[in-house]
């Protein structure tokens, strides 16, 4: 990897999306698990476990999107217009999710709360699935023409590889969300969720193996960079270590460490994805010469420089707020009059 501005921005956009996956990942996961709870109080505890933080988490997606637009406008333009309907569905899912969280507990009627419980849960799963499917397609390669325009339609996006990556993402978020809930709950609910974690880990590992095998067998270009830089196999090794560590920590009841392991495994997974892609940003299949790379898709060097200054000023502040908020709202969920 050459240390040039393009590579730095490739990493920074990656950091923003990794931040999104780690943070919104657990709250999408909580949403996906929502319907497994039984009583209204349990459901309120689940929603309030993410209550103060979910929209801050979503800001990572918004900022990631903005950074992609600024640093690699060609990727932003090609992916967002090419995946038009998928993007629209993602937007609708995110809107429904936000609204469901906000509105669910505002009325006592059973049908009202059930309606929002279902939309919260489904929209959380759909969001994770669509994000995963998009990543799967970007990795596998999509048909781009000489103007870097996508020419594949909506249903081509639902190929088996992309769908497996999508399901892996949902399973990953469910595992991550379950571990987060272990941290935020107490009593009988806490013990039940502890059981979910084990199931979620098994589900995730199955999909994880499937994705890894499919990538090794069918997506050879994802392996090129790592083959030529064998030292990077360390990341793959750390990834497996982080995943294997989760059930161990859960068993030992070191819940915080289990959560940190889960965060680490998401970070490692996305790092592997980045290494596999580098220096491509959207791989073009069947014409790899039409791929978007960190060079032909980037903004000017001057803009990348200005943006780097903006990021250097803004990101430490953003991290400080994020950490402060998580510290202030740490501990088990207690339902209060201001809760959802």
């Amino acid at each position: 990897m050459n240390i040039d501005l393009n590579s730095i921005w490739f990493s920074l956009v990656g950091v923003l999306f990794a931040g999104y996956a780690i943070l919104d990942g657990f709250d999408l996961g909580v949403g996906a698990l929502h319907l497994f709870t039984r009583t209204d109080e349990e459901r309120r505890i689940l929603i309030n476990s993410i209550g103060p933080v979910w929209d801050g988490n979503e800001v990572w997606l918004v900022t990631g999107g903005g950074a992609l637009f600024a640093a690699f406008p060609m990727v932003y333009a090609t992916a967002f217009s090419g995946f038009y309907l998928a993007m629209m569905f993602l937007l609708f899912a995110l809107i429904f999710r936000a609204v469901a969280i906000e509105f669910r507990s505002k009325q006592p009627h059973k049908w009202w709360r059930q309606m929002w419980d279902i939309s919260f849960s489904i929209s959380s799963m759909v969001s994770g699935l669509l994000i995963g499917v998009a990543l799967g397609n970007i990795a596998r390669g999509i048909p781009l023409d000489a103007q870097f325009e996508y020419g594949g339609g909506f249903f081509n996006l639902l190929n088996p590889y992309a769908v497996i990556v999508g399901l892996t993402t949902v399973a990953l978020f469910m595992m991550h969300g379950a571990i987060y809930l272990v941290l935020k709950t107490e009593g009988a609910l806490h013990e039940r969720i502890r059981g979910w974690v084990n199931n979620a880990i098994i589900l995730f590992v199955i999909f994880y193996i499937a994705t890894t095998m499919a990538t090794l067998l069918y997506i050879p270009h994802m392996m090129e960079y790592i083959k030529s830089h064998p030292i990077l196999f360390v990341v793959a090794f750390l990834n497996m270590l982080a995943i294997a560590n989760i059930p161990r920590e859960i068993h030992l009841r070191y819940d915080r460490r289990a959560f940190l392991s889960s965060c680490a495994s998401i970070l490692a997974l996305l790092t592997l994805f980045g290494i596999g892609m580098y220096p491509y940003m959207i791989y073009s299949l069947p014409n790899p010469e039409h791929s978007l790379t960190i060079y032909n898709a980037a903004s000017s060097q001057k803009t990348l420089q200005i943006m780097l200054i903006i990021a250097a000023m803004g990101m430490p502040l953003a991290l400080t707020y994020t950490i402060a908020i998580y510290r202030i709202f740490r501990g088990k969920v207690k339902l209060e009059p201001t809760s959802y």
Binding site: G66, A70, A71, T303, I310, A311
Partner: peptide, 11 residues
């Protein structure tokens, strides 16, 4: 234009 949007997110 993208720079301004990104700055909006960050700041």
């Amino acid at each position: 234009f993208g720079s301004a949007l990104a700055a909006e997110g960050i700041f």
